[in-house]
Amino acid sequence: MLIKNKNIVVVDYGLGNLKSLHNAFRAIGIEVIVSSNQKKIDNADGMIIPGVGAFGVAMQKIKTCGLFETINHFLYSQKPVLGICLGMQLLFEKSEEAVGVSGFSYFLGDVKKLSVENTKNMRLPHIGWKKLSQHEKSTPLFSNSILSHLFDQTQYFVHSFIVNPQNSTEILATSQYAKKEFACAVQKNNVIGVQFHPEKSRAPGLNVLKNFVDLC
């Protein structure tokens, strides 16, 4: 059954595959609005920033669509925001992927390439299901977050870059690739970012989205 009273917008800035997100929300009873319309975004109860592809291209497209201010305004509105994959990376200051391009700088810190030391075992993109660990400094944050049920659960990752938050208390959870730990979820106030794809991560992933809707 579809729940109509929650107004969740998935920002469509012309990049990536929004059908998967649409399907995943549908499965939890939410008909999301996929839109690039400023008014629809302003009026939403919660905002999803999706994204696959490259940092530079994404920021360029957001500006071309005239959505930079709209998204930025929403970030400071106290309403819940979820950035997924590249959609989380864009919330940081800058990325090694696109030197000279500024992100939203909501989180302090930058985006770095996963370092490849041994290409035999460590290939890029990093693709696969990985366990989440609670970050040591984020205990209360994690257990009160939309990810609290994910302790020791796996989620699906596909990425070559990772976020490097300046303020480690903003790290909700970490994961590992080739025995190297990286931040895979961050939260500051009303804004949450995840490197994995909850929309592609079975029931635990759908629960992340459901918990997000409950915040809205």
Binding site: N23, R26, A27, K200, S201, R202, A203, G205, L206
Partner: peptide, 8 residues
């Protein structure tokens, strides 16, 4: 199928 399958 993709309305019911939540893996890649």
């Amino acid at each position: 199928a993709c309305e019911e399958i939540f893996i890649p």
